[in-house]
Design a protein around this nucleic acid. Structure first.
Lengths: 339, 339
DNA sequence: GCCGTCCATGTAAACGATTCCACGAGGAGG
DNA sequence: CCTCCTCGTGGAATCGTTTACATGGACGGC
């Protein structure tokens, strides 16, 4: 590989001058500049980012540790994160934790070893010592979607409470009274919050949420299937199943279908996280949509603010209900299905 | 950050010895080893991967330039790539090209600047000078899914010809004669190959594939929608639409539905690339499934072979037809829907 | 008892950039 | 004409590692 020395030799100048041209430092003559640029051109020289990082102590790379790449919600998040980061001059290195704390730790560790400038995390659990240490040690960090209470790190997330209330009102209006939820892991904020929001909204209508109607999932399709089977085996199965994420909704759909039951006639279904395919499932699924792209962009902006010395801001954006047909025909004007 | 010097000081040894312990070089006493390890422990020292890379000229990172992260096929590919890479001791840096050659170039460039050890590419086009130069210059590289003819780079892909023939036989058996295809960009191998395979298979049954029935898409949902609308506007619309990827199938479904038509009664639909949601669409979609995970793993193995000096192997794996209901009820025993 | 090996360790030179500091030329101002 | 500043440039230190080479002690064989 050609180095800055080769360029200097080719241009008949010192490496210092070449470096100055490349970083457009003001104090360099027009003549030197053109000679350097010509040399760069003929040699096809590209600066070695590794060496540059070592010297400047910046990598211009952000780490993104995501709970599960196969989940379309996180895929979209990752995409918007990369887009905004690119616009701000950063690369993104994605680590997929697959909802496993050990994998999450692995990625955090290697990202820190690679000296990324900042870390975007959607924690799969309450936070490992490694991550908490890093946060305390001053690694620029931002939580996105999920967060860890009690840690002094900005959080960018969406608040689904209002949308959950809308959903419950919708269900109530359709006459449903026995409603169940497939919860996410209690160790995650989104896992517990969604249950809480659901329970609170139900209470407003005087509907209880008994333990038998709260199943414990792990945000993966299999758990949705398993929990739903449990619900269907109950002497008095629920009339509605609300899955706390889209993959568990997929699993629920599998389970319902495997029994030869139909949605929404035999049992209604709703999900947290809206994805494009929900328009085309049989039936189209009523879901709570997060402003995913905006979340990703806001998270990057917060992180880069932190990295570049500006005060970062936590951001909370509202989610909204998208009514489709999976809970029954809605005669009301709330209907607002988007394509 | 604590450096190797701090560790050396804490252990009362030289940095060389510390380094030897860390890279478990044979020639180091048991006493020194324990002292170094203790020092590492108390200081919480982690080696700086940037400095290490500069010195050793290896980053233990692979670049993966993917055509579109939002496409579930590529998401799954990315996931398996990361898994296998991790097992072999490498990290993966993903670049999303969004089917745009300029973005692809951007990512290739930054990945090369970061001195990744090797590059995995699924090219969006015929290959930019940048990428061809890199390949010629000896950057370890492997093409996955798509490739560029005439470049001396191993290719890991799947061959869909047999499956396409099965699909056409299936369509023919169901009585369909007027069949159309939504093709991918001709600049991509998968774009042109799938049309060719389809045309060849149709010919075996004496069915022509007129120009009016070949629509030009770009592997994105919007193009699938647009092309399908064109088909439906024809005086004699096709009886079947075959989309060359899953996103264009989604767009086709949108378009068909927007006209109030039904699949498969009014028009049949099939897709290349099987994804989990196809089981739950209305109706479940007949698709050609690639061994995506195996492709990703094989690609990584080939690339790492190349990097570590072993001869890399091109790999071609067969795709297979998964019959569901979107082309009409199949009375035949070919039925082999998987969940 | 001496010499040659081998082993553990240390010293110092790289890797490829950035950047502090020194230096010389040239211009402005007295 | 001398002094002082400014500006362009180069030399060299530095970032945190790895590793070739040197060194010195222990040990075995004769």
């Amino acid at each position: 590989m050609t180095s800055i020395k080769d360029v200097a030799a080719e241009a008949g100048l010192s490496v210092a001058t070449v470096s100055r041209v490349l970083n457009d430092h003001p104090s360099v003559s027009a003549d030197a500049r053109t000679r350097v640029l010509a040399a760069v051109e003929t040699l096809g020289y590209r600066p070695n980012a590794v060496a540059r990082s070592l010297r400047t102590d910046q990598t211009h790379a952000l780490g993104l540790v995501i709970s599960d790449v196969l989940n379309p919600y996180f895929t979209e998040l990752a995409r918007s994160v990369e887009e905004e980061a690119r616009a701000l001059g950063y690369s993104v290195i994605i680590g997929n934790a697959d909802e496993r704390p050990d994998l999450q730790d692995h990625h955090v560790r290697t990202l820190l070893d690679r000296r990324i400038d900042g870390l975007l995390v959607s924690p799969t659990d309450g936070g490992s010592p490694l991550m908490l240490d890093a946060a305390r040690a001053g690694t620029p960090m931002v939580f996105v979607d999920r967060w860890i209470p009690g840690v002094d790190v900005p959080v960018v997330r969406s608040d689904g409470r209002e949308a959950v209330r809308d959903l419950v009102a919708h269900l109530h209006r359709l006459g449903h009274r026995r409603v169940a939820i497939i919860a996410g892991p209690a160790a995650t904020t989104t896992g517990s919050e969604r249950v809480e929001a659901f329970r609170a909204a139900l209470a407003e209508h005087g509907i209880p949420l008994p333990d038998t109607y709260t199943g414990q999932g792990d945000f993966q399709a299999d758990s949705g299937r398993r929990v739903t089977e449990g619900f269907l085996d109950l002497p008095e199965p629920p009339e509605v199943v609300f899955a706390a994420d889209n993959l568990m909704a997929l699993g629920a759909l599998d389970a319902i279908r495997a029994r030869g039951l139909r949605v929404p006639d035999d049992i209604a279904l709703a999900a947290f996280d809206d994805i494009r395919w929900f328009v085309h499932t049989d039936p189209p699924i009523t879901a709570i949509a997060q402003p995913t792209g905006e979340l990703g962009r806001a998270a990057v902006r917060a992180l880069v603010d932190r990295i570049e010395g500006r005060p970062p801001e936590s951001v909370t954006l509202p989610a909204r209900l998208v009514v489709r047909r999976s809970c029954g025909e809605s005669p009301s004007p709330v209907q607002r299905s988007t394509t």
